[in-house]
Simulated assay, not measured.
Amino acid sequence: MVCEMLLKSVFLEDLVLELRSVSYDSSRFLADILSSVVGKTPHHIKDTKQFLDIVSDLNIAPDELIVSYNVTALLTSVPVDNAIEAIRVRLEEDTSWTTRTYLNAEQVLRLLKFCRNTTYFVFRGQFFKQNHGAAMGGPVSPPTCNLFIEQCKGLALESAPHPPRVWLRYVDDTFVVIKREHFSEFTEHINSQCKVIT
């Protein structure tokens, strides 16, 4: 109970600071732009209902496994500079976001870098600057991480010697159906493709 209260206190203190931060409004603005290009892959799941519709008729063969993969500490693990490059690629491929802003891709990326470099928080009365990962509580962090994971795991799937029969992903949670004999090889493969996140 004491631990839970402490965590709530620290979270609320951080949240209040984030709401007052110099980049909060920019972060919200960018989140709206980037959310329009997230999830445009055949493996993306938008919600529980869609997942249940897909798996309700799914048959698993005796030589197959159901596996769940998850990224450990997603927000703080994602290398934001790499994520920004993944976002650059997506903004060039999918221009649907241009209806949400008058900014061009370079301006969006410059604003994203600004938000990335102004991530501060307070802990026990002291100010800290976050140097790695995406800001917890920052509005642009979820789409930033999501786009990075889409690119990273997409490349891993394309290059896998024996990819799974089913690969469904919601942010960093992945549902997989794969042959038993290929499970270890595939797990090693996807972890080696993007070593900063596992």
Rank of each mutant, 00 (worst) to 15 (best):
N104T: 00
V37E: 11
L17R: 11
K179W: 05
Q50K: 12
F121H: 01
P139T: 05
P42Q: 10
L168G: 12
S184P: 05
F148A: 01
Q50G: 08
R20S: 10
N59H: 12
I87C: 09
E106K: 06
Y120I: 10
Q50T: 10
V80Y: 01
I60L: 09
M5E: 10
T118G: 03
D173R: 04
L91K: 01
V166M: 13
P142Q: 07
T118N: 15
V78N: 02
P79D: 12
A83W: 02
I33T: 10
Y120L: 13
C194D: 03
V177E: 06
I190C: 07
S159Q: 15
H44R: 13
S21A: 10
S27N: 05
S23H: 13
F29E: 11
A105K: 15
R90H: 06
L155I: 04
G137Y: 03
E185L: 14
N82R: 15
V22I: 13
A61T: 05
L34F: 05
M136Y: 00
V196G: 04
L58N: 01
A61M: 07
R165K: 15
H189D: 02
H189V: 07
R90K: 15
V37T: 11
S21W: 07
E64R: 04
N59L: 13
G138K: 06
S27F: 00
A86P: 01
A73R: 15
D63H: 05
V166W: 10
A86F: 01
S23T: 14
E185Y: 07
C3Y: 11
V55T: 11
K113F: 09
H44L: 09
L12N: 13
Q151V: 12
S56H: 08
K195N: 08
S77A: 06
S21Y: 06
L52T: 03
R110N: 10
S141D: 00
L157T: 04
R100M: 12
S184F: 09
L157G: 03
P164A: 08
A31H: 06
N146L: 08
C194P: 00
F29W: 06
V22H: 13
D53G: 02
V89P: 01
R20P: 00
D25Q: 13
A105W: 03
D32Y: 13
N104M: 07
Q50A: 12
E181F: 00
E158V: 06
S68I: 11
V108R: 08
Y170G: 11
R88T: 07
R165L: 14
Q126L: 09
D25S: 11
K8A: 12
V78W: 02
